[in-house]
Amino acid sequence: MTEQALALRATGVRMEYRDPATRERLTAIERMDIEIPEGEFVSIVGPSGCGKSTFLKIVNGLLPATEGEIEIKHSKGGSDHAMVFQDSSLFPWYSVQRNVAYGLACRGVKRKEAFARALPFIKLVGLEGFESKYPYQLSGGMQQRANLARALTVDPELLLMDEPFAALDAQTRELMQVELIRIWSEAQKTVLFITHQIDEAIFLSDRVIVMSARPGRILADITIELPRPRDLDIKRTPRFVEYEEQIWRLISKQLSVGPEAAA
């Protein structure tokens, strides 16, 4: 038993809900048990609708689970956890700086101080010079940089990321993946990352957790033993492709049942 400190432990998390239209009781997540040691980058991949985003919302406290327990390392100075949302979750009426400072404002930090503390993170994500722009004036990639900076500003023990690059074009997405690795190694955070892109998960992570189609449960927990630091060339190495095929086989079996199998 390794004595490494944990940042997150989820035990027996189960999620049921009632379909508002048919009033039928559905199971979104059958059972999830996850342990994430501090400093690790863990991704969850799975077919769409497998409940991975739901799981993240439960960890984030936005949804109550039906059963189970979530334990998160308590932070001394900062927040326990912070979420990087999917696209367009910046407040359109606030400037970049005010958006990034938002988490601090929520914790009662004065405007001036919050703005000052937001600056290094704006710099870290490469948005220097865009502090006073409104979100609509930024490209999709830049918006997600701001979104990331907003989460980092509260100095969370655990960074939750909900398909943050899903809405970006392929090239921007790869660029952001490289950026995320750089930021992650500088900020030294534990990350739980949700995606449906297999290559994205392998490229970024120390571990990839593969979920089944609904009702979601863990199919495999794969440790990615690729050397760090990584760059995009690694995606063309045989080891990487092997991981890709392994995970793709697991997921494609899940896909072949539904009518959307072709998609």
Binding site: G61, L62, A82, M83, F85, Y102, A105, C106
Partner: peptide, 9 residues
């Protein structure tokens, strides 16, 4: 959700 997740009052 964003506001709630950051613990906004």
């Amino acid at each position: 959700d964003v506001a709630k997740s950051f613990g906004a009052s």
